Amino acid sequence: MSADTMTLGDVSITRVIEWSGPVRTARFIIPDSDEDTWRRNRQWLEPDFWAPDDDSYRCNIQTWVLRSEGRTILVDTGIGNDRERPQVPQFAGLKTDFPQRLRQAGVAPEEVDVVVNTHIHYDHVGWNTELRDGAWVPTFPNAMYLIPRADNLYFDPEGPGRSRAPRDEHERVRWEGSKLVFNDSIAPIHRAGQAVLWEGTHRIDGNLTLEAAPGHTPGSSVLTLRSGTDRATFVGDMLHSPVQVLEPSWNSCFCDDPVLAARTRSTYLSRAAEMRELVIPAHWPGHGAAEVRQDGDGFALTAWADLPRH
Rank of each mutant, 00 (worst) to 15 (best):
E18R: 05
D36I: 03
A290M: 09
A3Y: 11
E158Q: 15
D297R: 13
G80D: 07
D34L: 00
T224C: 14
R71Q: 13
D295M: 05
T139N: 01
R71E: 11
D48Y: 10
S2W: 05
A51D: 12
S227E: 05
R15P: 03
P218E: 09
D36W: 03
G288E: 06
G219R: 09
A305H: 02
A105W: 02
E35M: 03
E199K: 15
I29M: 11
V181F: 08
V245H: 00
G286R: 03
P285L: 09
D55N: 05
R103M: 01
I189L: 05
L301P: 02
P248Y: 04
D297V: 10
T217C: 07
K95S: 09
E291M: 12
E18D: 05
C253W: 10
D306V: 02
F49C: 05
L225V: 04
D256M: 14
V114P: 01
W19L: 14
I17K: 12
V88L: 14
P148D: 01
V243E: 08
M1T: 00
Y268L: 11
W198G: 15
V107K: 00
A213S: 07
V173M: 12
G296M: 01
D82C: 11
S56T: 13
A303I: 02
S270K: 08
S33E: 12
V75N: 07
W44T: 10
D10S: 12
L239F: 05
P157Q: 03
H124R: 11
L180S: 07
K179E: 06
W284S: 03
A282T: 11
L153N: 09
I61C: 11
L8Q: 07
D237H: 06
L269T: 06
L131Q: 10
A232L: 00
N251G: 15
R203L: 14
D257F: 15
